Amino acid sequence: MASVSLPYLLALLCYLEFCFCFNPKHLNLSTIAKHWSSARATWYGSPNGSGSDGGSCGYGVLVSQPPFSSMITGIGPSLYQSGKECGACYQVKCTKHPSCSGKPVRVVITDFCPGCAEGPAHFDLSGTAFGAMALPGEDKKLRVAGVLEIGYSRVACDYSGKTIAFHVDQGSNPNYFAAVIEFEEGDGDLASVELKEASSEDWRAMQQSWGAVWKLDAGSQLKPPLSIKLISQYSGQTLVAKNVIPNGWKPDATYRSLVNYL
Rank of each mutant, 00 (worst) to 15 (best):
P114N: 13
L216M: 12
N28T: 14
L230S: 02
S257A: 14
Q233R: 13
L9F: 07
E185D: 15
L148E: 00
K96I: 04
T73N: 15
E85N: 12
M71Q: 11
S192F: 12
P7V: 15
R154A: 02
G87R: 06
G74A: 11
F22S: 09
A178I: 02
V180P: 01
A39V: 06
Q81R: 06
G51K: 00
D217S: 02
F112A: 08
N173S: 14
D139T: 11
D158F: 10
T73S: 12
S30P: 01
W210G: 03
S235N: 03
F123S: 07
S70P: 11
L27P: 00
S199M: 03
L142D: 02
T31E: 15
S232C: 01
H35V: 13
R40G: 07
L258H: 14
A205R: 15
E185Y: 03
S126K: 11
S69N: 15
S172E: 04
L10M: 14
A39F: 08
I150V: 15
K196R: 14
D189K: 05
S160T: 08
L29W: 03
F183P: 00
A134Q: 04
C94H: 02
S101Y: 03
M206I: 14
F130E: 01
N260K: 09
Q221H: 08
L216S: 01
Y261I: 00
C113K: 01
P104T: 05
A117H: 08
I231G: 00
R256V: 14
G74K: 07
S30N: 13
D202S: 14
A121M: 10
P66R: 13
I72D: 09
L79G: 06
N243P: 00
I72A: 02
G45P: 00
D187S: 14
Q233G: 07
V107Y: 07
N175H: 14
L27T: 11
V213D: 02
D187P: 14
E138H: 10
A121K: 01
G219Y: 01
G211W: 08
S209F: 04
W249Y: 11
L239R: 02
K242R: 14
